[in-house]
Design a binder for these strands. Structure first.
Lengths: 341, 341
DNA sequence: AGGTTTGCCTAAACCGGTTCAGAAGACTCG
DNA sequence: CGAGTCTTCTGAACCGGTTTAGGCAAACCT
């Protein structure tokens, strides 16, 4: 079956030159005559030579792979389409370069730190993506100490030596709130994501600011862990109290969809009795009823940008931050004029 | 920062023995006196030696990584929580062994085949998981030819040299149909998954059989690609025709949730006017309205079983098939007695 | 002319492990 | 006591590339 792998030594012998020269020719580096170069390439081709990643790894001390460590409760992970799309985006830039993606899904943050350490000490990856950025993220100093190139998904709130790919969630949240206000809403609540996560607390801050700018009093906010279950709980709490909000801004779509379910269950009409908005514009949003008004983000663009930036960083030693265009509000049916403001 | 990596040569020098002996001691293989062994281990420990995966890879011709290639439209991938959970399950068995998971998300089947080839020729992985099994799956002969250990997720419909992890979907579908019939439904339709995918066509066959066994005439089936959008389209077609079905069995939850949305949009009451059931019991099902009656499956158990089986296969050269317990129907509110049978 | 540079190439070391042939010493056995 | 066997260990080859030091000849000075 597996015909004996042909090595550069075979090519060298066939071409009557030294191993070193073959290596030079193959990597087209100077110091090889044009004539020899084509002959060597031709012979390598004819012999069906393919480079041995393992040998190359050993001598160049690179692994030709990038890492992504995801620390999330599998439950939360499942309902969040961010990662599949993000990964698909990353792959579009890695694959052409012959780089692989090493994925780790770990249950908690402690394991996460250990995982980074072992990825490095095993030399498994040449760089990593840092997602779900947290406040004062301990992974940044860790990776700095480990000397591993990294790209952060989101702008860290601490000093960071790494380039970041970020998108400002503020405009999307602000647009949402303005839209709701323009429809006549005055009691607007927010179901926030995890306050430990930067995008969670930033969306919340954006919400607070937007209310203030609309001249409204501070609204209710409930913190969650971004999970569908927590979103449902929060919605229930908000909607079963006295004088419930007429609109709820959810920090992500899965929670908003759960909110829709809760509203229906409570016999409330959406958007007549309560308006609901989401964030991310996942696949589902178009197909729930009423279709979800939400802010569109583009996870696969993140993936592409992150991949490119990490490649640049590794090749050039430095890479600029990337600011992705802010998400725009997509208006569908789940938000409307309140029946009883 | 990065202190010069300590190698077995350092340990050997320090212990006053040869490199070979150190290697033997470290891998605890016979031929080392108990005395030397502990001394070498002690010194390795003291020096902070850690094995170089790269060097080991080169000399043992193994990569200590397993591969998963996912060929799916990113859109479909995003709404399907199978893979995140599956991967989390796989990781629980890989991580303790120091194995990594190499993930590839590719857009189409052609790229998929190329990806397998390059994973092998690069020696990136020691084995792979074969998911989304198709009829007459070309990946099986390919992997056989490439000599790569593999585990199939689902039982292939062709001769296969690989162990498979499978679960029989028939009981779940049958239970669903029986339940609907017991509620009084007579016109039951099916929104099937992709006929190219084994689990798609098997669920459909199970549906047909179940109807027959209930003494009902063949029901309507619509084929889809498992995507939310296709599910919504199918639901719309089914529900807008003359004498629409009173119940729709969807081949997965995302489509069922879309079906729920379509029903609402058409002004139909669920379950009074139409009952809807899903398959998989994803996170969302509990939180849509009405909560989805569906069949529970356990993707992370698949992951664990697949991981263990692949490890066994690689270690022992053979591993038995695993039959996972069939999914049971989870009764919630989306299916009920038809108002107008 | 002699010395320096340049272009092309080779040999060998190196990356950090594993593995194998065989040496040296201790032990067994007839 | 000498041959044979075990155990323990060494040295070197090996995995398949990259990289460096240096050799040799032709071209380039002045």
């Amino acid at each position: 079956m597996s015909e004996p792998k042909v090595t550069i030594a075979d090519v060298a012998r066939e071409a009557g030159v030294s191993k070193g020269l073959v290596s030079f020719a193959l990597n087209d580096r100077p110091g090889v005559s044009a004539e020899s170069r084509v002959r060597i390439l031709e012979i390598a081709e004819r012999l069906g030579w393919t480079p041995s990643l393992r040998a190359r790894s050993l001598s160049t001390r690179r692994s030709f792979a990038l890492g992504l460590v995801i620390a999330r409760d599998p439950e939360v992970l499942g309902s969040d389409p961010f990662f599949p799309s993000f990964i698909a985006g990353v792959e579009t830039v890695l694959a052409p370069q012959g780089l692989a993606l090493v994925l780790s899904v770990v249950p908690d943050e402690k394991t996460e730190m250990r995982t980074y350490r072992s990825l490095v000490s095993d030399g498994r990856v040449d760089g990593v993506f840092l997602s779900d950025l947290r406040h004062n993220d301990p992974r940044i100093p860790l990776l700095q100490e480990l000397g591993l190139p990294a790209v952060t998904l989101g702008r860290p709130d601490t000093e960071s030596p790494f380039p970041c790919i970020s998108v400002d969630d503020t405009p999307g949240v602000a647009e949402t709130v303005r839209y709701l206000v323009s429809l006549g809403h005055r009691r607007i609540a927010h179901v926030a994501g995890s306050p430990a996560l930067l995008h969670g607390s930033r969306r919340r801050a954006a919400f607070d600011t937007a209310l203030r700018e609309a001249g409204l009093p501070a609204g209710q906010s409930i913190e969650t862990d971004f999970s569908v279950a927590a979103g449902a709980d929060a919605a229930r709490r908000l909607l079963t109290q006295d004088s419930p909000p007429t609109a709820i801004v959810f920090a992500n779509d899965p929670m908003a969809i759960a909110g829709l379910g809760v509203a229906h269950e409570l016999g409330l009409r959406v958007p007549d009795d309560v308006s609901i908005t989401g964030f991310d514009d996942i696949d589902f949003t178009r197909y729930v009823y009423p279709a979800l008004t939400t802010v569109r983000t583009a996870p696969s663009d993140w993936g592409r940008a992150a991949g490119r930036t990490l490649l640049d960083l590794m090749a050039l030693g430095t890479a600029p931050d990337v600011d992705l265009p802010a998400g725009r509000l997509v208006i569908r049916g789940s938000a409307g004029t309140p029946l009883r403001p």
